[in-house]
Computed example of a mutant assay.
Amino acid sequence: MDVGQSTATDLLGRAHAGTFRMEPGKGREVADIYIRFADFVADQIDEAKRLHALTGFGGFASAGELSKGFEGKAVEMTAALTSMRIAALRMAEAYLIAGGMVEAADDLNRRVINATANATGGDRRP
């Protein structure tokens, strides 16, 4: 499921190529919006992970199947949210590069790498 990764990748490529440019202050402003969104999504990822193991459905076989179905949807939701978070961080990185803030973009790129590595567990905010 592509929830913005292709757009982020394209924009990041344009920023690296120098065909997408912005004033440094404006690039930082837009990047900050994407970073805030990524942090908000990180909180939603935490909530979704709590739904990976549900209880309270009872002991019937049908209750177990229902529980597993909901847990599976929670895992899918976590994956989609994680992809959204990574795409948002990549967008922020693109805007920083477009604004000429390469060091800030490098720092953010480390967050992206850590977020990708931690997608299946671990810290949500590298």
Results as ranks from 00 to 15, higher is better:
F20L: 12
A15S: 14
A87F: 00
K49A: 15
N114D: 13
D10F: 06
F57N: 06
T9G: 03
R125L: 12
H52Y: 08
V112L: 03
E47G: 09
A48C: 11
R125Y: 08
E29F: 13
M84G: 07
A87M: 00
T82I: 03
G58E: 03
F60R: 11
S6R: 07
V3S: 12
E103S: 06
F57G: 04
A94C: 07
G122K: 08
R124C: 07
L51A: 12
I86F: 07
V41Y: 00
R111H: 09
I113V: 14
V3K: 11
S62G: 01
T120S: 15
A15F: 06
V75I: 15
M84E: 10
G56L: 01
R21N: 08
K49L: 14
R14T: 02
D10Q: 11
F37L: 00
A119K: 15
E47V: 15
V112G: 01
L54N: 05
I33R: 15
A117W: 06
D39Q: 12
G121R: 15
A115C: 08
F37N: 02
A53Q: 15
A74H: 12
T116N: 06
G99M: 12
L108R: 03
T7P: 00
I97S: 03
T55Q: 11
R124L: 15
D43A: 07
T120V: 13
S62V: 10
G25E: 15
T116R: 07
T82N: 12
A74Q: 11
E29M: 13
D39C: 04
E29W: 08
R110P: 00
E47Y: 13
M1G: 14
L11K: 09
P24I: 09
